[in-house]
């Protein structure tokens, strides 16, 4: 039974990190209907900024983590202002193509820094010994990661449900023209959506970087790894990202724990999330919590 509970715990830990990584996709899609292909690069950028502040400038990691969130917030806001704002009103595919270009630019810029081709790890700032209870254990890094993830997800949920700006963002997501007619600044909302997505990506980067070490390939690959989570949860649902993230985390752990290595199976933890995604999408094409839009003509 310990084995089972360990897998559940690990699944929740991994799933919550997936959820936080997926949040950036959701925030942008929710307000602008755009899929940001450069999300993995934003995750990596956040992690590298935290590292640079911590190690190169000697700022305590607790502070540098929050500074990196702020830097990435303003960085992505600027990216939206410079590259994407002029595309408001253009076909969505054009905007997605620009995010592909953005991905290449960020790749190129990161390759100009030591982070592009060197490996780093955050200095140890939490106890090295794991937390163990009844034979089930997790590291302090994982625990802190889960706490930060749920705190941020809670904050974003409140923000979208209760705050004026959050409600404006949801309104823009529903109908841009109607939102403008009641005085909401659509460009400002888009800017904020990108900024908050950048912030969540930086948080995810910091947590993943602490878990795996800082390797650019590993970090930016998460932009793709969490894609099934985003689709499964429904592209525009924060709750969906959380639930789907944890489902995916649990599937991976159970597949790894019970299927792999038996009956000649291997790598099911990688494949199974996609198979389950396909099956769920057959019955719920908009994902578990995605909004099903009905258009009348």
């Amino acid at each position: 039974m310990t084995y089972f509970f360990q897998l559940v715990l690990s699944g929740i830990v991994v799933g919550s990190i997936y959820a936080l990584s997926a949040l950036g996709f959701v925030l942008i899609y929710k307000s602008s209907r755009v899929l940001n292909i450069a999300h993995g690069q934003l995750i990596a950028t956040g992690a590298f900024i935290t590292y640079a502040l911590t190690v190169w400038l000697g700022i305590p990691i607790y502070i540098s983590f929050f500074i990196s969130l702020l830097i990435t917030f303003f960085l992505t806001m600027s990216v939206e202002r410079i590259f994407l704002r002029r595309l408001i009103g253009e076909p969505i595919i054009s905007v997605i193509m620009v995010t592909i270009g953005l991905m290449s630019i960020l790749d190129g810029l990161i390759y100009l820094t030591p982070f592009g081709s060197e490996n780093f790890s955050f200095p140890l700032f939490l106890p090295k010994e794991p937390i163990s209870m009844a034979g089930v254990s997790m590291s302090w890094t994982q625990l802190v990661g889960v706490i930060i993830t749920f705190a941020l997800i809670g904050a974003f949920s409140w923000f979208f449900k209760k705050s004026t700006i959050g409600i404006s963002m949801r309104a823009v997501s529903d109908d841009q023209l109607a939102s403008m007619s009641i005085g909401i600044s659509v460009p400002r909302v888009f800017g904020l959506a990108w900024a908050t997505a950048g912030l969540s990506a930086a948080a995810a980067g910091g947590i993943i970087g602490n878990t795996t070490g800082l390797n650019f390939d590993t970090l930016h690959a998460f932009g793709i790894t969490v894609f099934p989570v985003v689709i499964l949860g429904g592209l525009d649902s924060i709750l969906g990202a959380v639930v789907a993230g944890i489902i995916m985390g649990l599937i991976q752990q159970f597949a790894g724990g019970y299927l792999d290595g038996n009956w000649g199976l291997n790598g099911t933890g990688v494949v199974l999330p996609y198979i389950i995604l396909l099956i769920i999408l057959l019955f719920k094409p908009h994902g578990l919590f995605g909004i099903h839009e009905i258009e009348r003509v």
Partner: peptide, 13 residues
């Protein structure tokens, strides 16, 4: 794969 956590695999092994 691109695993964030290898606990399941290690437990299995």
């Amino acid at each position: 794969g691109q695993d964030l956590d290898n606990t399941a695999m290690l437990k299995r092994l």
